[in-house]
């Protein structure tokens, strides 16, 4: 099977409190980066190797998502064609070689659920920005949310 990567993105359901989001909004305003409607936070998991869409969805439902507080999106990475969004999505990944204990735990969890175990799992911190200029989003991520020495920023086209 070709090396496919499926991405599971998990975030709070609407109406559920998002402390990291509120905290990030406060920092944005203190940094005077211009207009911003809101920030939503969550996690992103990239599952690679021996992974199909059903596996990714099963992992999402049984392991990665809290049924009461969260919801998820599952899609292939590199599938191309972004749906119209209205927000700017940033994911902050640990750099290659930096400890990613969460990724390892996901593989352990898949084993427990008797699902096919992905060869590799990377876990990253997700930030969705509404009503902000893309340039400012990048700046905010670089100065407030990540350290270039250990993190890599992935900014989807807004």
């Amino acid at each position: 099977m070709a090396e496919e990567t499926w991405r599971v993105v998990v975030y709070r359901r609407p109406g559920c409190p998002d402390h990291r989001g509120r905290s990030a909004e406060k920092d944005w305003r203190a940094a005077r980066l211009g207009p911003l409607k809101r920030i939503r936070t969550g996690q992103a998991y990239d599952l690679t190797g021996s992974v199909t869409a059903p596996t990714a969805r099963a992992l999402a439902g049984k392991l990665l998502v809290d049924a009461v507080m969260q919801e998820a999106e599952v899609r292939g990475v590199g599938a191309g064609g972004k749906s119209a969004r209205g927000f700017c999505r940033a994911v902050i990944w640990p750099r290659q070689g930096v400890t990613d204990s969460v990724g390892e735990t996901v593989r352990l969890g898949a084993r427990d659920l008797r699902l096919p175990v992905p060869d590799k799992v990377r876990a990253g911190a997700l930030f969705d920005f509404w009503g902000a200029a893309p340039r400012k989003v990048r700046r905010f991520c670089e100065t407030h949310l990540m350290n270039d020495l250990v993190h890599r920023l992935e900014l989807e086209k807004c």
Binding site: Q43, K62, L63, L64, D66, S101, V102, T105, V106, L108, G109, D112, L113, R114
Partner: peptide, 19 residues
């Protein structure tokens, strides 16, 4: 347990409920 990775107690919960 398991570092609170993913969510607190989730991995252990699955071990209990699946294995």
């Amino acid at each position: 347990s398991y570092g609170d990775d993913i969510a607190s107690g989730k991995v252990l919960a699955n071990q209990l409920s699946h294995r």
